[in-house]
Structures are given as structure tokens and as C-alpha cells.
């Protein structure tokens, strides 16, 4: 593409870009910056862009709200667990939907999508007594199951798209070469669907890391995740300690930003699966 815009066009485009940047990055920038300010400096007007940074907020978070780090650990366990579980199930599901076509598979595919469209809370709340009876409330396993289940339907379809792009002749070539179905899947197909797995994993991880509602309903203490602590920070009895809250939010942001930046390529591939021929 060559650049043939007039100066006015370029100015308007720049303006739009600036607006979008302020719109999307502005709040994050404000939070991250504020987490390094003293409480009194946070809401002064006009905002101070030049100030002496302090890590007081982080120290306070560590000393007065040390439950936050425990909760972050919980978030990590739950996010990784859900990602792995959803990854395995949707990989195998996608394989089955792509390679074993029958009336049964097409009906269940419709069902999976339909369930995904319902408000999650409607599907989940009736589970409460069951979960209680099974002794699963306030456990990591429960959140892992919930989050993974929530994403398996969509990720299975993403994986099916990836499998569909691999010509069936490749399977046949492997069979003729002497491979069993297990060897076909583990030595060939898994390598060719890595992009899809990566994209799907990011969705699950980010979702599980950020999720608030289910965690609030189903955990009380042991499996409490980081977003719950952040909300408690906001509603603290002695008023919101903004600096500490912003420090927590900043820490909460780090893994997501890192993950999405590192895996940007896979993410886009996953979102556009099936639209372009590999």
C-alpha cells in the first residue's frame, strides 16, 4: 500500500488515532501512574505528570492487604487449571467434530452453541445446591471446572475450524505410513493446530484471571481470587484507599498485558480462523 493521503486527511487520521489511544489506553495509564503516587497527589487538578514516584502503595498492599497475594496465587492456579482443562477438551472435541461427522455430532454442536448463548448465570445458579452437596464450594476445582466449561464450547468450534483446514489426505497419508490414530494426533495434528490452541488458551486464561461474578458466588475464603480482593479494597470500612487499590489493579494487569502482547500473533490467527487459507 502506498501513502497518498493529503495533509488534511493525515491530520484527521492522526486525530482519530489520538482519540482512540486516549480512550483505550488513558484509564490504564492513569491507574498505573497513580499507583506510584502519594494518596494526596492522585486526584489533584490539574493532574501531575511529573512527580516523585513512591512504592508506598505496594508496600501497604503487601503489609495491610496481604490476602491479595494469596488471592493472586488462587487466580493463577484457577486460570492455569482452566486453561489446561479447556485446552485438552476442546482439542479432542475439535478433532472429533472435524473428523467424525454424523447426525449426532451436528446436533451436539448446535446444543453447545445454544448453551453458550444463554446468560451464564442462568445456567450456573441452579448448580449451587449440587456444588454444595459435593463439597466443592470454595475450591479451586470448582472454578476450574466452571471456567473451562464456559469456554469449551467456543474453543471446540475454533479448534474444529483449525482441524478442518488440515486436509484429510494428511491423516490418510499418516495411516498409510503406519500411524495409529493416537500417533496421528500426537505427532502430526497437534503441531498443526498449535496456533488455535494458543489462541483458545489466551481466551480462557484471561477470562479466568479476570472473572468476578462466579468467584463471588462460589468462593468465600480458601479459593478467593484477586478480583474479589480488589473489590473489597474499594469498599473498605475506612474509605477507599485509592493508591493501594491502583497498586493491586496494576499487578492484576501485568500477566494479561504480557500474555496478550507476547501471543498477539496467535490471538489474531485464532480470531480469524477459517477466514484465510493457511
Amino acid at each position: 500500500m502506498h501513502n497518498s493521503f493529503s495533509p488534511l486527511e493525515r491530520f484527521v487520521r492522526g486525530l482519530f488515532l489520538a482519540f482512540m489511544l486516549v480512550w483505550s489506553v488513558g484509564p490504564i495509564f492513569f491507574i498505573v501512574l497513580s499507583s506510584f503516587k502519594r494518596q494526596v497527589d492522585i486526584f489533584v487538578y490539574p493532574p501531575k505528570l511529573i512527580f516523585v514516584p513512591t512504592i508506598d502503595n505496594y508496600l501497604k498492599l503487601a503489609t495491610q492487604w496481604n490476602g491479595f497475594f494469596h488471592a493472586m496465587g488462587n487466580s493463577l492456579i484457577v486460570a492455569i487449571g482452566a486453561t489446561v482443562l479447556a485446552g485438552i477438551v476442546s482439542f479432542l472435541g475439535g478433532y472429533a467434530y472435524s473428523r467424525y461427522r454424523s447426525r449426532l455430532t451436528s446436533w451436539t454442536a448446535v446444543y453447545m452453541i445454544a448453551v453458550r448463548v444463554l446468560p451464564p448465570i442462568v445456567v450456573t445458579l441452579p448448580l449451587f445446591p449440587v456444588v454444595d452437596r459435593l463439597g466443592l464450594s470454595d475450591t479451586h476445582i470448582l472454578l476450574i471446572l466452571l471456567y473451562a466449561t464456559f469456554w469449551v464450547s467456543l474453543n471446540t468450534m475454533i479448534m474444529k475450524n483449525f482441524f478442518d483446514q488440515i486436509p484429510y489426505e494428511l491423516d490418510e497419508a499418516a495411516y498409510v505410513d503406519g500411524a495409529t490414530e493416537w500417533q496421528l494426533v500426537t505427532r502430526i495434528l497437534i503441531r498443526l493446530t498449535l496456533q488455535g490452541m494458543a489462541a483458545g488458551s489466551i481466551f480462557v486464561f484471561v477470562y479466568a484471571w479476570n472473572e468476578y461474578l462466579f468467584a463471588m458466588i462460589f468462593t468465600t475464603n480458601n479459593a478467593k481470587t484477586a478480583p474479589l480482593i480488589l473489590s473489597e479494597l474499594m469498599g473498605a470500612i475506612d474509605g477507599t484507599v485509592w493508591g493501594v487499590l491502583f497498586a493491586g489493579v496494576t499487578l492484576q494487569l501485568v500477566p494479561v498485558v504480557l500474555l496478550v502482547t507476547l501471543a498477539r500473533r496467535y490471538l489474531i490467527a485464532g480470531l480469524t480462523a477459517g477466514s484465510v487459507k493457511g
Binding site: 486436509p167 490418510e172 499418516a174 498409510v176 502430526i188 503441531r191 498443526l192
Partner: peptide, 11 residues
Amino acid sequence: MVFQNYALYPH
């Protein structure tokens, strides 16, 4: 067997 689209393992 040799296939029409070669069916080589791309990776």
C-alpha cells in the same frame, strides 16, 4: 500411496 495434493507433513 502418493496423493493428489502430495499430503506432505508441513511441519
